[in-house]
Design a protein around this nucleic acid. Structure first.
Length: 572
RNA sequence: CGGAGCGUAGCUCAGCCUGGUAGAGCACUUGGUUUGGGACCAAGACGUCGCAGGUUCAAAUCCUGUCGCUCCGACCA
């Protein structure tokens, strides 16, 4: 390809809209342009990188035995009604109407469609297992699109769905995808780590996310250096808080005491009260499906909303307003407690089990209770884990201190079970002639996000540093003079032809620009291999080989093609 | 959805407070000089100042509304 024949609009200045390095570089290197918030056009270079990621995904999915299909992006709401997700996933659904005023939606994912297909086509255990995948544009009404391709209203996703006859066989399918994902991200040059994850609105039994460590990531991963434990903060557990909860026998009487103006944990921990946060019970009031619930946590703990949603079994959860709270408890936030509360469900964190000598709000502004015993004074209706793990807490498996790292989620594998197959009637007859629901798994990769994650993880002050596997072009030929018929251009064209014939993705920078402009652009775009051809070195029978980020090496003209081919082979 | 900020040339921004001829740099066009790390000189083209309404002799500037974009938050009582 000739540079002047393609379209690479590089930018010297950073567009004001971009915040993180990868987003800035996608724009500056001429890979994408924004149409509007959360919607982007892929330019020729962006398409090439994207196709390379897709190619790797296809090869590994095919290798793992999955079959490529292509489903409609436009979907009827009826199948979402059946699965129950018309309500539970309503926040992310793009809905529209046709001329007859019938409602449709743009697919954010395809469990309903594929399960409907399988329900009609697969009737016997002899037809299982099956794994269907597609690479397709998804639509999600994101609460806040940001960071370019990282979180967009429209994005390209690889989604796969496995169907098995038994739970054990479904586990095999799950493991195949898990292994395929490990290979895919490695081939993309990404350090991606699998972590235990929350299943969220997808439902299902358990899941793993593939996380790319990055300070700009939107997720937090808890991991242990002592063993292999790693989990999304939304799901992570530890051996417990660093300071144990008091469980001394409850002897002292419950006692109300005045705390005028005290409405925070910190204020109660300070003079003159001096009640340490770990001796306080924090009382939160939430609305779950429009019904009030109390959530009790230890004062130094933080509520993990994902765990709350998982326990309550509904995604429609929000903190109650001060008015709603006052209406139910006759007190304002800061003076709340569960002592004597019997009319509302009380969900307490397990850290408070058998807690004694605790202090909590008295449901009367300006008063707290001390000497609270959980067993004696609280009517807890549900015990569960609601707290977020903190850095340094002991690993539940091996006892080593846990660490936390921000990360970008690039892939997610779910063991779904029979939730969708039952609701959408994907049954088959087993070898005993008995009707069974297919056991499902689903597996997603954010293809466009993966492409951006590669840049986020691999760049420097000058631009992108593409791994050869996903670079838009592998080799950039940089003649320092483009005089037609001159020795420099003649050699550039010869090398271009030879490399293309050898199947190398090569671009020839035939622009009549000063060398500095060409060097800067090649580094901004991030081609892995650059071959500089100038009169000075050519006089010595040499060209200049430079890998992105590496040293410039003179190479005899006759050896350059072999050297380039060697570099490419070494990267595979 | 709440809060904050910003909408002026293709891009980055100044001008707005204190109303009176719409600007700079980059990019673009033409000519010339340059030519190994984002050149220089000269000339030129490019704007309904997001949109709508209002105040005023006069609005990019003041007021109201609206749309869009960016960031923070939407958990810690």
């Amino acid at each position: 390809m000739l540079w002047t024949h393609t379209f690479i609009p590089t930018l010297k200045e950073t567009p004001a809209e971009a915040e993180i390095a990868s987003h800035k570089l996608l724009l500056r290197a001429g890979l994408i342009r924004k149409l509007t918030g959360g919607l982007y056009t892929f330019l020729p270079l962006g398409v090439r990188a994207l196709r390379k990621v897709e190619k790797i995904v296809r090869e590994e999915m095919n290798r793992a035995g999955a079959l490529e299909v292509l489903m409609p992006a436009l979907q009827p709401p009826e199948i979402w009604e059946k699965s129950g997700r018309l309500v539970t996933a309503s926040d992310v659904l793009f809905k529209l109407r046709d001329r007859a005023k019938k409602e449709w939606l743009l697919g954010p994912t395809h469990e309903e469609v594929i399960t409907t297909l399988v329900a009609g086509e697969i009737n016997s255990y002899r037809q299982l297992p099956r794994n269907f995948y597609q690479i397709q544009t998804k639509f999600r009404d994101e609460i806040r699109p940001r960071f370019g391709l990282m979180r967009a209203k429209e994005f390209i996703m690889k989604d796969a769905y496995s169907f098995d006859a038994t739970d054990e066989l479904a586990q095999v399918s799950y493991q195949k995808m898990y292994d395929a994902y490990t290979r895919i991200f490695a081939r993309c040059g990404l350090k991606a780590l699998p972590v235990e994850a929350d299943t969220g609105v997808m439902g299902g039994k358990f899941s793993h996310e593939f996380m790319v460590p990055a300070e700009t990531g939107e997720n937090e991963v808890v991991y242990c250096d002592g063993c292999r434990y790693a989990a999304n903060l939304e799901k992570a557990v530890s051996a417990g808080p660093a300071v144990a909860t008091s469980t001394a026998p409850a002897t002292a009487e419950l006692e109300k005491f005045p705390t005028p103006g005290v409405v925070t944990i910190d204020a109660l921990a300070a003079a003159p009260y001096l009640v340490p946060a770990e001796r306080q019970i924090k009382t939160l009031v939430y609305l779950a499906d429009s019904k009030l619930v109390l959530i009790l946590l230890r004062g130094d703990d933080q509520l993990n909303e994902a765990k709350l949603v998982a326990t309550l079994g509904t995604p429609h959860v929000r903190p109650a307003s001060a008015e709603e709270i006052f209406g139910a408890l006759s007190a304002h936030p800061g003076s709340l407690g569960a002592v004597g509360v019997t009319t509302l469900p009380v969900y307490a964190d397990t850290v408070l089990t058998n807690a004694t000598e605790m202090t909590t709000g008295a449901n009367e502004d300006g008063f707290h209770f001390r000497n609270v015993s959980a067993a004696r004074d609280l009517k807890v209706t549900h015990w569960a884990d609601f707290r977020s793990v903190k850095v340094g807490e002991a690993c539940a498996k091996c006892g080593q201190p846990l660490k936390i790292q921000r990360a970008i989620e690039v892939g997610h594998v779910f063991k779904l079970g029979t939730k969708y197959s039952e609701k959408l009637s994907a049954y088959f007859l087993d070898e005993n002639g008995k009707q069974q629901p297919a056991v499902m798994g689903c597996y997603g990769i954010g293809v466009t996000r993966t492409m951006q994650a590669v840049i986020e993880q691999s760049h420097d002050k000058d631009g992108v540093i593409w791994p050869i596997s996903v670079a838009p072009y592998t080799v950039c030929l940089t003649p320092l003079s483009v005089t037609p018929g001159g020795p420099v251009m003649a050699l550039a064209e010869k090398l271009h032809a030879e490399l293309e014939a050898a199947g190398v993705d090569v671009i020839l920078d035939d622009r009549d620009e000063r060398p500095g402009v060409k060097f800067k652009d090649s580094e901004l775009v991030g081609f892995p291999i650059r071959v500089g051809i100038g009169e000075k070195s050519l006089a010595k029978g040499e060209v200049e080989l430079k890998t992105r980020g590496g040293q410039l090496v003179p190479v005899p003209v006759g050896e350059i093609v072999a050297r380039v081919m060697g570099l490419i082979a070494a990267a595979q």
